[in-house]
Simulated assay, not measured.
Amino acid sequence: MSQHPYKSLPDEAFWRRSVAAPAPADVDPVGEFELRITPDTRVATAGSCFAQHIARYLSRSGYNYYVTELGHPVLPEAVRKAHNYGLFSARYGNIYTARQLLQLWQRAFGLMSPTEDCWQEGEECFLDPFRPTTQPGGYVSRAELEADRSQHLAAVRRMFETLDVFVFTLGLTEAWRSIQDGAVFPLCPGTEGGTFDPARHEFYNQTVDDVIADMDQFITALLAVNPTAQVILTVSPVPLMATAEPGAHVLASTTYSKSVLRVAAETLRKRFAAVHYFPSYEIITGAFNRGAYYADDLRNVLESGVNHVMRLFMTHATGGVVAPVRQSGEDVIARQQRLSQELVDVECDEIALDPD
């Protein structure tokens, strides 16, 4: 029989052997993943709501989930949690798009100051347009908002300068931005604060070139101030809640958005030695699990899916070294039930787009 290149390929190169034949829990699409983290590695996270799973799992697994904005130490933990401290490595809330991440960097390093920087909702209710849901009830004055923003951006700057690994989950390509200066908002103005004005706000749907350019600029800037930093990119498997693309069906828009982000992530992985890709999107959406990792709404990811993703992440990223899990006085079963609920219960600003 003739020889050809496919004769010498490993099982993972063949659909039947690595996707169709194994039990769903045994499917491992990670491939080569050279980055290693240890319990001392400072791992920071940002991105869409799916990034919260990574943050919480790292923290519960005894690894160094790196947080630079902890909240005042006199505040009880429950209060800090209610005010979104620790949800991500700094209190920036969901960062859905590449442009939003680049903008955060620019603001933290004093390279950008958006014109529309405050939404007044009442006599004593002021919202940060770029973190509208982070402060429950808003700030009592513009001065309080600005003071907290200054502290927040300093924490972001410190995070970027001192982290070891930055995990960023790319979520969306669709965004709303200011016509005046191009600043992008995490949500359409008017959904969770502010007033939508077609004369001031416009829809913006990123292309592959847009995402690559934004991420290239961000990664280059990060490596300039933190040369040893490593970046892990993932793509969120959570479909769009709604699409603003004219004439488009939300399913088609979801496919477009995730395709753009996946292509961009692969391009960046090949462009930068410091960039790594982890296939959480493929694990959750892969045909091998027959949709079993989604809830009945076909959008929220179930605990079983998160566990599959994080089991493979910890196996490949740690080289199989398991850190001691932080124990509490809780009954083991009760603790697991609580942890399972926390893993599924994430803060997702995008849900405001379809409140009914």
Rank of each mutant, 00 (worst) to 15 (best):
G320Y: 12
C188G: 00
A292G: 13
R271N: 03
G247T: 05
G194Y: 13
P29C: 04
Q206N: 05
S236T: 11
S328K: 01
F88N: 01
R177W: 04
A292D: 14
A82N: 07
D28Q: 11
I284Y: 09
M314E: 13
V30L: 06
Y139V: 01
V238Y: 07
V235C: 12
G194A: 06
V211T: 12
Y277L: 01
D354V: 15
L240N: 06
E77A: 14
F288D: 02
P189H: 09
D214G: 00
E350K: 08
R326L: 11
Y57I: 04
H308I: 01
I54D: 00
F288G: 01
D354M: 15
V322S: 09
P324M: 02
A221V: 06
G182A: 09
P186Q: 01
A143E: 15
S59R: 15
A51E: 07
S141Q: 05
P129R: 14
V79K: 12
M215H: 07
N226G: 05
K258Y: 06
F130A: 02
G182R: 10
G122K: 11
P73G: 06
M241T: 15
F185G: 02
L343T: 04
Y294T: 02
D297Y: 05
Y204T: 00
V275P: 01
L339C: 05
I212A: 13
H83A: 08
R17E: 03
R158W: 12
G138C: 03
A292H: 09
F203P: 00
E245W: 13
M159T: 07
Q135G: 01
F130S: 01
D40F: 13
L222C: 09
F166I: 02
P355M: 07
C49R: 00
T254R: 10
A98W: 04
V322M: 11
V167T: 04
R326A: 03
G93R: 12
D128C: 09
L298S: 08
E12N: 07
L312C: 04
I54E: 00
L153Y: 15
L268Q: 05
Q336R: 05
L261M: 12
E282D: 14
N64H: 15
V301H: 04
L240C: 08
R338P: 02
R158H: 15
A147T: 13
D345P: 00
L58R: 02
N94P: 03
D356M: 11
W119D: 11
L233M: 03
G31V: 06
A78K: 12
P239I: 11
T243C: 06
Y63T: 05
P24M: 12
V238W: 07
R16F: 03
A221C: 10
E32F: 14
E342Q: 13
C125F: 05
E161G: 00
Q3W: 14
A264L: 06
E350C: 15
A90I: 03
A199R: 14
G93M: 09
Q106W: 10
